[in-house]
Design a protein around this nucleic acid. Structure first.
Lengths: 150, 150
DNA sequence: CTATCTGTTACTAATTCAGATACACTTCGG
DNA sequence: CCGAAGTGTATCTGAATTAGTAACAGATAG
């Protein structure tokens, strides 16, 4: 899989931690350490999925379309188009062989079932959860730094 | 993910349906519709994992190292090296940004949990199950053909 | 009207994937 | 003992994918 899902989650966690603000693709690109074009391509997918909203023009940018509590990792996963592509079946088994002709039919239901389990797991975490984890980590770092200085 | 897992399962189902026989990489390649070199590279991984055994020289080939009932899709999945690589994290988020510094630490446990669910699902199917599905499909085709002729 | 931003497209370099080939080594059979 | 039939491993290549880069039309605030 490409990094789209991971980067999209990064974007959304960032937005969740800037509540109400409109964030530019340039700002997001700096945090991700990539280029604004790549960010905008991902935002295009998130916007199509109804997860974010963008405003154009001066002071434009992107913000969450709904509370982070209502955006699961599964929503993001599906929005980034990774859904159903975890297992890559081999494309052209020999149909003249009984195994070649039937192997994909036998495998696909198992692939689908496994991916559904994975999706169920992703649905249990929200963008708010991720953002909260980040908040906790930041607080822990601050406390450690303060203790070091004391 | 590459097609290794899918092809490896094809190989093992084929071997399960030729019980006791030693099958050459050439024969397997024809069924998969690929080249013997690719098959041998995969067999190298399956052999290292203790799933298959190979004999060299004339009349050499590969057979299952244990009953197909005792080989799960999870065994094959792990043997083909796909384990733990479903989600590709973005490599270099900006450590100077609180989100960039902590996003991967927040995401990784969720990625791991989701993959474990996927693996649990894969563990429920064996190579014998896949082979049996193929047998059933072949019988259904034969019955249909016979009915058409009658 | 200009600066700032999005949305989209096109081009490019790096990487990954699997097909192709080669060849040393092993083993069976005559 | 020799040749044919295999495995095991390595290298090279073309195609596809990935993300970095750049460019530019359109929108909007001031």
């Amino acid at each position: 899989m490409n990094t789209h899902f991971s980067v999209a989650t990064h974007i959304l966690a960032f937005l969740q931690l800037q509540p109400g603000k409109s964030v530019s693709s340039e700002t997001l690109a700096v945090s991700i350490n990539t280029n604004p074009g790549f960010v905008r391509r991902l935002l295009s997918q998130l916007r199509s999925a109804g997860i974010t909203t963008s405003t154009m023009g001066t002071n434009g940018g992107t913000s969450l379309a709904r509370p982070g509590e209502d955006i699961t990792l599964l929503d993001v996963y599906k929005a980034t188009g990774a859904s159903g592509q975890i297992f890559t079946p081999h494309t052209e088994p020999n149909a003249a062989c009984p195994v070649g002709k039937n192997i994909l039919g036998a495998l696909q239901p198992r692939f689908d079932a496994a991916e559904l389990e994975l999706q169920d797991s992703l649905a249990k975490t929200t963008i708010a959860d991720i953002a909260e984890d980040i908040r906790v980590s930041v607080r822990a770092e601050r406390a450690k730094a303060a203790a070091g200085q004391a």
